[in-house]
Design a protein around this nucleic acid. Structure first.
Lengths: 161, 161
DNA sequence: GAACGTCTACTCGGATAACTCATGTCCGAGTGATTTTGG
DNA sequence: CCAAAATCACTCGGACATGAGTTATCCGAGTAGACGTTC
C-alpha cells in the first residue's frame, strides 16, 4: 500500500502556486525545474489535477497552469484524490459471499464488520486530510520560513540560467 | 494507493481462528477452502502473519496455524501491518532538498509541513485500526450473526467434500 | 501610422514504451502419527 | 500383548513464473503573441 510519488509533487506544486499572483500561469517545465523533476511526468500529474477541477490550464505562449479556485477552497484530500483516485485503499471483495451461509442478495461491503472497521479507518484518514487547506499550509510555511514565499515566487517567474 | 488483497484474507482468516478452541491448528488448505481462495497464496500470507508474531505454525499431520496470542491482544493494525509492511503510505522523498535553499543536513521528513500533515493523517488511520481487537470483532459478529461461530467452527474442523 | 494577415514558437494533451511490485504457483524439507515387526 | 523402529502422509516454507499498474517518455494539436506587409 504505497502512495504514488506524484502525490508529493502535486502537493508541493500546488502549494508553490499559492504564492503567485492570481491569474498568473506557470508552465510545467518551470514547476519541474523547481525540484529537478522530470517535466513530462509532472505534466501528467498536473493534467490529473486539471481533470479534478483543482487547476486550470492555459495553452500557448505565456501559458501553463494556475489554481482553479482560492487556496481556502482546496484541501489536501482534493489533491490526493485527484492523483490517487477516489476509491478507498481497502476494497472489500465480499469474500463472505463465498463462505458458508453467504447470500448473493447481501451487500457485504455494508454487512461485513471487518469492512466497516476498515472503512472507519479510511474515513478518519480522509477527515484529517480534508481538514487541511492549501491556505492554512501557505500561512504556516510563511510563519516558519519567511523567505520561502519570495524565493518561490522569484524562481517560478524567472528561473536561473 | 491500493491495499493488497491478502489483507482481507488475513483479517477474515484470523477472525475465523478466534472461534476455534485454543491450541487447535488449522491448515492453510482448510482456511482457503472456507472462502474458495487459492491455497498456496493464502499460505504465503499466513507465513507473513507468522513472521509478525500473530500466528504460530505447526508442522506435520494435524498441523497448521493457530493464533500466537489471545484475540484481545491482536489489533487490526497488527494484521494489516504484517501484510502491508510497517512503512506509511506517503513516503516523503524530501524533494525540498532539491529546491532553492534546500540543505543536505536537514531532515525534511520532519521539517516539511506537507510531510507532517500527511503523517498526521496516517496516524489517525493507524489509531483507528489499533483501537479494534479481534476479540471485539468476534463479540460483535457473535451478537449480530449468532450462527456464524458454530458454522465456522464446524466447517474449519471438518470441511464438506 | 494603423490594421490585418501570416507565421512562429511555446504550451498542453493524450498516446505509447519500460519497469517495478503485487499476484499466483510450484516443489522440497521437516515432522508427527501410523503401521509393522520383533520380543 | 507391548514396545520400538521404520514408514508414510501431511504440513509449512521458500524459491520460481506471471501480470497488472505505476513510472517515464515522446510527439502532435492548439493557441497566443510577434512580425511583416499593406492600405
Amino acid at each position: 500500500m504505497k502512495m504514488a510519488e506524484g502525490v508529493e509533487w502535486a502537493l508541493h506544486s500546488c502549494l508553490n502556486m499559492t504564492w503567485l499572483q492570481p491569474g498568473r500561469a506557470v508552465s510545467a517545465a518551470r514547476l519541474a525545474a523547481f525540484y529537478g523533476l522530470p517535466t513530462a511526468y509532472l505534466n501528467k500529474q498536473l493534467q490529473a489535477l486539471v481533470r479534478a477541477g483543482i487547476l486550470r490550464s492555459v495553452s500557448g505562449p505565456r501559458g501553463g497552469f494556475r489554481l482553479a479556485r482560492a487556496p481556502e477552497e482546496i484541501t489536501l484530500l482534493d489533491v490526493v484524490t485527484a492523483i490517487e483516485g477516489a476509491e478507498e485503499a481497502f476494497r472489500c471483495a465480499q469474500i463472505l459471499r463465498q463462505g458458508p451461509g453467504g447470500r448473493a442478495d447481501v451487500d457485504y461491503r455494508q454487512a461485513c464488520l471487518i469492512s466497516q472497521a476498515m472503512r472507519r479507518a479510511d474515513l478518519a484518514w480522509r477527515r484529517e486530510l480534508a481538514g487541511q487547506t492549501l491556505a492554512q499550509l501557505r500561512e504556516a510555511v510563511g510563519d516558519r520560513y519567511p523567505d520561502t514565499p519570495r524565493n518561490t515566487r522569484e524562481r517560478l517567474v524567472a528561473p536561473p540560467s
